[in-house]
Design a protein around this nucleic acid. Sequence first.
DNA 1: TCGCTTCTGTTATAGGTTCTAACTCATCGC
DNA 2: GCGATGAGTTAGAACCTATAACAGAAGCGA
Lengths: 221, 221
Amino acid sequence: MVGTDAGTPRERYRAQVQQEIKAHAWEQIRAAGASALSLSAIAKRMGLSGPALYRYFAGRDELITALVRDAYRSLADAVRLRAEAGADLAALAQVLRRWALDDPQRYFLVYGTPVPGYEAPRDTTSIAAEIMAVLLEASAGVVGAATPDDREAPGPLEAHLAEHRSWDGGNPAPSSALRLALVFWTRLCGVLSLELAGHFTGMGFDPEELYTAEVRALTGG
Amino acid sequence: MVGTDAGTPRERYRAQVQQEIKAHAWEQIRAAGASALSLSAIAKRMGLSGPALYRYFAGRDELITALVRDAYRSLADAVRLRAEAGADLAALAQVLRRWALDDPQRYFLVYGTPVPGYEAPRDTTSIAAEIMAVLLEASAGVVGAATPDDREAPGPLEAHLAEHRSWDGGNPAPSSALRLALVFWTRLCGVLSLELAGHFTGMGFDPEELYTAEVRALTGG
DNA sequence: TCGCTTCTGTTATAGGTTCTAACTCATCGC
DNA sequence: GCGATGAGTTAGAACCTATAACAGAAGCGA
């Protein structure tokens, strides 16, 4: 645990209390969703009284923003770690699915309903870019493995992406890899969002079958 | 406008006030999201005082439930009307996109973050089934139009769906049509959810290109 | 037309929330 | 030890949901 005990005692204490607040916040969110998050309730359960928490977070919004950032970070770490361990795109799909099922409300904090006025802070967008970079790298591996016969003529989307690839982080992957990473992302989020929101309940089939079928279609398995 | 003025004067008045309440509610939701919906604020803007609204809705949850139902209904009507006018699957995709972009928060009320404990009332699930029935019908048209050469061997998902098609509403469509309707739904919701939540902002490309590319891939255009 | 009933809207109130202000007290560094 | 910093407290303003008790209008039957 390198870096855990850096700074002055006060800073360490402060960081620890902040972590404790966030832990209680996650507990509440898991139980009743982010909209039910209450600073007062957290304070009460920590043996503190209401306004004490404002020493640690400027308000409810700042706490939620921190939770969103942590959620983003946990997904980015999970994906990046497995990618560095040599996982291919199909394996990354399973990482994403596991991460989502492990805590649906955490998934929705990242990919759920946005607040109209809300502007994502800079660090979360950079984490999002980090995730896309990993997916892009893995996608380049898939399209690179395709035999020349499999290379279809670039469609309109590839052409469009070839001209708008400012988000590729300098990755020299072909536009077909850009397309694959993007479609991978949207299709899997599509299945997960509907599954976790319960839109498949009562339909009788197993969402995992749908998910893995989409992964197969994407990775040419 | 058949059926608008049915019932006693009191019933008509009551229905009108309920509609007015919902109109103000949508206004608030469009501006600041469903979590910012306030009965007090609605009452104030209607020239009423707080508790008066409880004559029309038992509480905040019941109002939101009514709004969810109306949102579902508007999507089902939009899709069904165009389908009855002869629209094919690609055209229905455009209807869905237009409906979503027209009011993102309405989309998220249906397909956004769910409240953990919340159980969808029966009438909304039946509307969801109605939407799926329309998509299934249009999907059957697409797979029916495919030449025999295009018919691929049924994959694992088709096999799974063939055994779990309780949601098909008695439609005798082949399991490939079930698969298509399901994948149509999830892929398009994937693009729309990410687009409307702003996850593509700053990436430079046009989400509509991605959307139409997915529609092309689905309808074999 | 009278009067009863039903429904609408009111105020008062309880209890919850976020958040600010002002104050007390412990801790840390010099 | 002493001053500065920071943590935690209570008090309070301004919201919110929701209920209770009451006033008054509208509808309906006799």
